[in-house]
């Protein structure tokens, strides 16, 4: 495990109780293995291929593509989100398994970017989904994208990347915001009903 870098080691030394060590270790595994679902929503989709291929090689940081939301840890939203797309994004996000993270690329998901007055895109992604990391730029280059992943890793290690918890706890707020834009085309009940009950697990 040569990739326990100095920062990790320093953190590890500060921990006192054994449970804290276990938590730390779990987080370490989580941050070292990130299955990414790249959702090419906008212009930024083009920046993902160089990020994962020979030039920038995200795999060396343990970032790897996943095929379906069930397997993914992070969803990367690359750019503006049309209302229609957002619906699919929410669907996909809800299908992912906790702990799950959201990385939003570009200025569009932050404040609408150059689509600030579009009739058809949403302006502020974190009204609808809990965004863990946003990478600003129009469009952020792969270096910046990787920087975003590093920021996410840091957050995971600190145990602060808990967007999923936030979403679950404030589900009513998020759903109301979503309802504002979808209106009567809201996602059907079966997709999110379990957020409101305990979901019947075994």
């Amino acid at each position: 495990m040569d990739n326990l870098n100095k920062k990790d080691k320093a953190q590890l030394k500060e921990l006192k109780s054994p449970m804290a060590v276990v938590d730390w270790a779990v987080n370490w595994f989580r941050k070292q293995s990130i299955f990414m679902l790249a959702y090419g929503t906008g212009c930024g989709a083009i920046e993902i291929p160089p990020t994962v291929t020979a030039r920038y090689d995200a795999e060396r940081f343990g970032v790897r593509g996943a095929a379906t939301p069930r397997q993914a840890d992070v969803i990367v939203l690359s750019g503006y989100l049309a209302v229609k797309t957002l619906k699919r994004v929410i669907r996909t996000y809800e299908q992912m398994q906790e702990p799950k993270y959201v990385i939003a690329l570009g200025s569009c998901p932050i404040n609408g970017g150059m689509y600030w007055d579009s009739y058809n895109t949403i302006k502020q992604l974190d009204r609808y989904l809990p965004v863990d990391v946003t990478v600003a730029g129009c469009m952020p280059r792969p270096e910046a994208v990787l920087e975003g992943f590093m920021a996410l890793k840091d957050k995971i290690q600190r145990g602060e990347a808990e967007g999923a918890r936030d979403y679950r706890d404030n589900i009513e707020k998020y759903k109301n915001n979503q309802k504002e834009i979808f209106g009567d085309k809201m996602l059907p009940g079966y997709t999110c009903d379990w957020y409101f009950s305990d979901g019947g697990s075994f």
Partner: peptide, 9 residues
């Protein structure tokens, strides 16, 4: 021509 993940990835 990438570096690739660690061996125990």
């Amino acid at each position: 021509r990438r570096v690739g993940p660690p061996l125990w990835q």
